Amino acid sequence: MLTILVVLLRPHMRSSTYLYLSSMAVSDLLILLLLPLDLYKLWRPRPWPFGDLACKLTMFLSECCTFSTILHITFLSLERYLAVCWPITAKTLVTRRRTKTVIGCLWLGAVVSAAPVLMMVGVEEVGGEELGMGGECRCTDYAVSSGLLSAMMILSNLYFLVPLSILGVVYSLIGRTLWLRPQSSRKDQTHRHTVKMLAVIVLVFILCWLPTHTDTHSYILYYLSQYFNLVSSVLFYLSAAVNPLLYNLMSARYRHAHFFCTVCHI
């Protein structure tokens, strides 16, 4: 919440980079709000007492925020690539208004991509109603039989592998450009610091989300090891909480603005 307030209350923090980071903070906040329901599901998988709509919405929001975060990190890295490697072009293309428009499109793309989840999940009886086990919030039989589950798995794989490839190429080009330039330029030093922060964010994102991605698409692992499922869930929620800590550790500008907002609200 403080990450969002920093951008809202401090005009000098409304650069394109921090607009992306504040939008990512919205996604992280939504993910963390789902934590109590996931903990409940872990503690008592069935019966699911919150109804079919809550089941669909929680799964939809989780997938939507996952897609949104991946898109934000990718486009933020592309924006940094333009700023470092094509600075003149970046001044023309990257404006605050266009950045807000891109962020809106990223959220729209994430919503559309996650929409099939609303048809894939629901509350279904497990073990037979006569056994009194009750319904469980899970992927439905219809999703498996219709091929919707397979299509969604392919889409999720593309959402992870394609951005990962793009990020690898982008940061390689940025690193090469900065390495060949003299380090005396103050602007280049700022770019180096920003890129270093974003590279750490991307690395933490990959480390935290790779087990979740593997767990989501490998039901064999799910059934063989509930511990793997638990660890991947913990890392998934850790990724939603760790970004503000990284900003504070790596950005003096963010720390000062963060401190200002905290003091004002106290």
Rank of each mutant, 00 (worst) to 15 (best):
M1D: 12
M1F: 07
T3Q: 13
V6G: 01
H12M: 00
M13A: 05
S16P: 05
Y20L: 10
A25V: 07
L39M: 14
L39P: 06
L42E: 13
W48G: 00
W48L: 01
G51R: 10
G51I: 05
C55V: 01
K56N: 04
C64A: 15
C65W: 01
S68Y: 10
T69P: 00
H72Q: 13
H72T: 05
I73H: 04
I73A: 10
E79I: 07
Y81D: 05
Y81W: 15
A83R: 05
C85M: 11
T95L: 10
R97L: 10
T99M: 12
T99Q: 11
C105Q: 14
V112W: 12
V112A: 15
L118C: 07
L118E: 02
M120T: 03
V126S: 05
V126C: 02
G135V: 03
E136T: 03
R138C: 03
R138F: 01
C139P: 02
T140R: 06
V144S: 06
G147Y: 09
A151N: 12
M152W: 03
I154Q: 10
L155A: 13
L161P: 08
V162Q: 09
V162Y: 13
I166N: 08
V169K: 14
V170R: 05
Y171I: 04
G175K: 04
R181A: 12
Q183H: 08
S184F: 03
Q189E: 07
Q189R: 13
M197N: 04
L198E: 12
F205E: 09
I206Q: 11
I206R: 09
I206V: 13
C208R: 06
P211R: 12
T212L: 04
H213T: 08
H213C: 03
S218V: 09
L224H: 14
Q226K: 14
L230D: 12
L230I: 09
V231H: 03
S232E: 07
S232N: 09
V234A: 14
L238D: 02
N243W: 13
P244L: 06
Y247R: 10
Y247M: 11
N248E: 00
M250K: 05
R255F: 01
A257L: 01
A257G: 08
C261P: 02
C261V: 15
T262E: 12
V263G: 00
V263P: 00
V263M: 05
